[in-house]
């Protein structure tokens, strides 16, 4: 169907993962991480999402969308009614 879902999916995770990583970098020693038991979730998880997005985006760009016609069923091949 023209558009490979992995492209928007990859981009979404690239952007949002990127935003979270950068924000996590800026707020490295901030008090906001008391909630998450001192773990900087933004930078760790953000980077992971960024990498996932990158992989999805690249794979989506590389592979062509499969637009094969629907396989006919055995009894439809001979009859030719459809």
């Amino acid at each position: 169907m023209g558009l490979d879902i992995r492209i928007p999916l990859g981009l979404l995770f690239l952007i949002n993962g990127g935003i979270m990583s950068i924000y996590g970098l800026i707020t490295r020693h901030s008090a906001i991480y008391e909630r998450s038991l001192g773990v900087n979730l933004n930078i760790g998880w953000g980077l992971l999402m960024f990498v996932f997005g990158l992989v999805m985006f690249l794979v989506g760009r590389r592979q062509k969308w499969q637009d094969d016609p629907v396989n006919p069923r055995p009894w439809e091949r001979g009859g030719g009614q459809h």
């Binding site: 935003i19 979270m20 924000y23 979730l41 933004n42 998880w45």
Partner: peptide
């Protein structure tokens, strides 16, 4: 709300 700081809370 309990565990997520700003940023990942949005996610």
């Amino acid at each position: 709300l309990h565990y997520f700081p700003t940023g990942i809370l949005g996610l």
